[in-house]
């Protein structure tokens, strides 16, 4: 359903006020793609109708709109350039570390599992070439707020449509089995990832420290204030030589000084800034 400029403003204001979701310019498509089903179900012909209905104040509709805006789309190997750097630069470093001990990776808003499984497949694939390191050395924690997303991720069954979005043909052949209408991910890859429900607004203290954290395409919905607090917590959850990856349109610049950026083949990664405070663990100590 198409949205007009005026309607976009209305919806944008509504969402900011009621959910803390801030939509930037050019995000019209987000509203269109996520709310159409709900609108049809509720007999709304236009976004103006939807907005009126929301203003009239039915609680279930509000919850459903916010659900629809935050339960989210994801892809395999989202952002080619990022995953290509990840495969070429990061994975070899991680494998080197894994030869000495455990490597911990956190996908902090894993949605239906594409992100952590993409990483697990890349690691497994690379390990095929260094058979001395078992893939059990890698601990991938994947968390999300949404139980529905975690269910899908845990079941590791994807429709043809979901699989077509970003999956590499060689990985599809190698790691998926057709099962009825779904494609089921290989048990070996599934075993590398642990799923938990976790809200990024909560304390990170119990999660431990990580070599790599991916927190991609989730903070876009948060206010700067919340972003600042979450960037701070992410920074403290990194091992001293750990790195954080954000979505390709995201940057902590101007929001926090707890992170410093480092370019790897033109892709930005972030490290805890020295002396930014809150970095109290013993250097080099690993869980």
């Amino acid at each position: 359903m198409a949205i007009t400029e005026k309607e976009f403003q209305l919806m944008k204001d509504y969402l900011r006020e009621h959910s803390g979701i801030t939509l930037g310019d050019g995000k019209e498509y987000l509203l269109e793609s996520r709310l159409t089903t709900l609108m049809v179900q509720n007999g709304c012909e236009t976004f103006t109708d939807l907005h009126k209905m929301l203003q009239a104040g039915t609680e279930p509709l509000r919850v459903k709109v916010i659900d629809a805006m935050t339960t989210n789309e994801t892809l395999w190997f989202r952002d080619d350039s990022f995953f290509s750097v990840f495969e070429k630069e990061i994975v070899p470093r991680l494998i080197k570390r894994a030869s000495m001990g455990k490597v911990r990776i956190w996908s902090a808003a894993c949605s239906t599992g594409q992100e952590p499984y993409s990483i697990a497949m890349l690691i497994d694939h690379a390990l095929g070439r260094s058979p001395s390191v078992p893939n059990t050395r890698f601990e991938i924690l994947a968390t999300d707020l949404s139980p529905s997303a975690i269910f899908m991720a845990t079941s590791a069954r994807y429709s043809q449509l979901a699989l077509s979005r970003g999956m590499r043909p060689d990985f599809k052949d190698r790691y998926f089995n057709e099962n009825g209408l779904a494609y089921e991910l290989d048990q070996k890859i599934r075993a590398m990832v642990t799923f938990k429900q976790f809200n990024l607004m909560d304390s990170f203290a119990l999660l431990g420290k990580f070599d790599i954290i991916l927190c991609r395409n989730v903070l876009i919905y948060f206010s700067d204030e919340l972003k600042k607090s979450i960037y701070g917590k992410l920074s403290t959850s990194l091992l001293p030589d750990g790195m954080l990856a954000l979505g390709s349109s995201e940057s902590p610049r101007g929001i926090t000084d707890a992170l410093t950026s480092e370019l790897l083949a033109k892709t930005a990664f972030y490290r805890p800034a020295q002396g930014s405070g809150g970095h109290s663990q013993l250097y080099g100590q690993r869980k």
């Binding site: 459903k64 529905s148 779904a182």
Partner: peptide, 13 residues
């Protein structure tokens, strides 16, 4: 129909 890609989180809660 094509199987749904999820359920309502509010319902689970």
């Amino acid at each position: 129909s094509v199987p749904p890609e999820g359920f309502s989180d509010a319902c689970w809660d």
